[in-house]
């Protein structure tokens, strides 16, 4: 009888699986990626490597010495201790972050606009103390432009009423408002010394949200040719809330990471962050295998660095407020080993 190995489910729960059950989970995860995202399956060597990683009983798993990758973060610190600048220092000095990101608690570009002067002076203070690249980040967050938070009709209310034309018109208007706000904040923070701008959780409100991000990136790149621009996606697949929006002749609804990356690179990003959702009812081994299969071609073909989003509920990391280190380290190591990532 095979001995069981302690491992995790996608919600973080500890379970015991035999090596045969882990192998089945890995193969099922790859098959799920092939079916859903129409990607190539992983090779037998790659599946064997995943089995090796997930069959270990060790508390922690890590890449080989020399294979380390850079670590970037979307929003540094809890904002519960000291100041926001202290948060950045902790991340640089104690967590060894390779880049740090100042953020406002609302973490959206629209509310950041209202406190821009404070954000600029905080960035300026931070730059004197931080050596690592120090940027500013927030989300496009298109929903904030609809009632009751914004001026536009709410497409989530219009769509169930069958008002497709009105819903699309509202989203098109929101794209322009969001792109203008993102550019204003980004330009202001760059003027205050930010080394890069991060558009995080892009596409959260669907294809219009992603379009707003791409349009803003284009404008930022045109104004600041040498500024770092990082984009982190909201999920593995761009939802078609509008359905007909295009960028550079490519329909945005339904795009997977490879195509997302190509458009983001064309718009002007220097770092692309794919986000692959976690299924909480499946083992972490299943989720990691599925993540890697979906992202592999994107990593192979990318013209810019790829930092896979690896955190609570994405990139194979359990959907739990305190993701266990055993699961997080296995998911990270597996992704770096097989995808040859540029960062996490």
């Amino acid at each position: 009888m095979e001995s069981s190995i302690p491992t995790r489910m996608g919600d973080g729960a500890l379970v015991r699986l035999t090596p045969a059950e882990i192998e089945t989970a890995i193969r099922d995860g790859v098959a799920a990626a092939v079916k859903r995202a129409r990607v190539k399956p992983l090779t037998e060597d790659e599946i064997a490597h995943l089995l090796d990683i997930f069959s270990s009983r060790s508390r922690f798993s890590a890449v080989d010495i020399g294979d380390e990758v850079t670590l970037s973060y979307d929003g540094c610190g809890s904002q519960d201790m000291g100041t926001r600048v202290n948060d950045l220092q902790y991340y640089e000095q104690y967590l060894c972050a390779d880049s740090v990101e100042l953020y406002h608690h609302d973490y959206s570009y629209k509310p950041a606009k209202a406190v821009l002067g404070l954000e600029q002076t905080t960035m300026r203070q931070a730059q004197f103390l931080i050596t690592a690249p120090c940027g500013y980040g927030a989300m496009p967050d298109l929903g904030l432009y609809t009632v009751p938070d914004g001026p536009l009709a709410n497409w989530s209310q219009l769509l169930p009423m069958g008002k497709i034309g009105e819903a699309r018109a509202a989203q098109e208007e929101a794209v322009e408002l969001a792109a203008a706000d993102i550019f204003l904040v980004a330009a202001s923070m760059a003027d205050a010394g930010a080394d890069f701008i991060d558009l995080d959780t892009a596409g959260a409100a669907g294809d219009a949200d992603f379009l707003a991000a791409l349009k803003a990136i284009e404008r930022i790149r045109a104004r600041f040719p040498d500024l770092g621009i990082q984009i982190g996606m909201a999920s593995e697949f761009v939802l078609g809330m509008h359905g007909e929006l295009e960028y550079d002749g490519v329909r945005l609804a339904g795009l997977w990471p490879r195509e997302q990356m190509m458009l983001a690179a064309k718009a002007g990003v220097t770092i692309f962050g794919p986000a692959i959702n976690v299924n909480t009812g499946k083992p972490v081994a299943w989720n990691v295998a599925r993540t890697i299969a979906i992202v592999k071609q994107c990593c192979e073909e990318s013209t810019v660095p790829v930092h896979l989003n690896g955190g609570m509920g994405v990139g194979g990391v359990p959907m739990h407020i305190l993701p266990p280190g055993d699961a997080t380290s296995r998911a990270s190591r597996a992704a770096v080993d097989i995808l040859r990532l540029d960062g996490l």
């Binding site: 990758v69 690249p133 890069f196 990082q230 220097t270 770092i271 660095p305 540029d342």
Partner: peptide, 13 residues
């Protein structure tokens, strides 16, 4: 090198 130049990790190292 990644942030300002968009250089991939192997080349950047």
């Amino acid at each position: 090198m990644q942030i300002t130049r968009g250089m991939r990790l192997k080349q950047a190292k």
